[in-house]
Amino acid sequence: MSISKIEVITDMSRFSSLKAALSKAGVGGMTVLQVLGCGVEKGTREYEVDNACEMELLPKEQINLIVETEQVPEILEIIKQELYTGHIGDGKIFVYRIDNAIRVRTGDEGVSAL
């Protein structure tokens, strides 16, 4: 069985509700980073008139999940439903294939390491 990484970048205010929803769905672990970034709007706030000329990096949360590839569609749906508001800044999700994962303590590899 293969494993995948789901990387979610979203506004800091959405993190706690996303964590609760993923816990409820049975996701076993995550890594969270506080990052700076912007998308195609270059950090322009939704109420502003003109788009920013220069990128303005806004504080965001990056949440990394490693899951079985079979579970990816279900977890993506949960994340999308939880983060969606229709406003600019809802976030982005990236999905990567993972070649291998290893649990140091036991030496388990692949899905067993999750």
């Binding site: 502003e48 008139v49 508001t85 406003h87 600019i88």
Partner: peptide, 22 residues
């Protein structure tokens, strides 16, 4: 655009446009 309609919920959307004379 939907995101613009949702942005109108924010009071700043109107204040900024009023200040700029838009």
């Amino acid at each position: 655009p939907m995101q613009k309609v949702l942005a109108m919920e924010n009071d700043l959307f109107y204040i900024i446009r009023k200040r700029r004379g838009i």
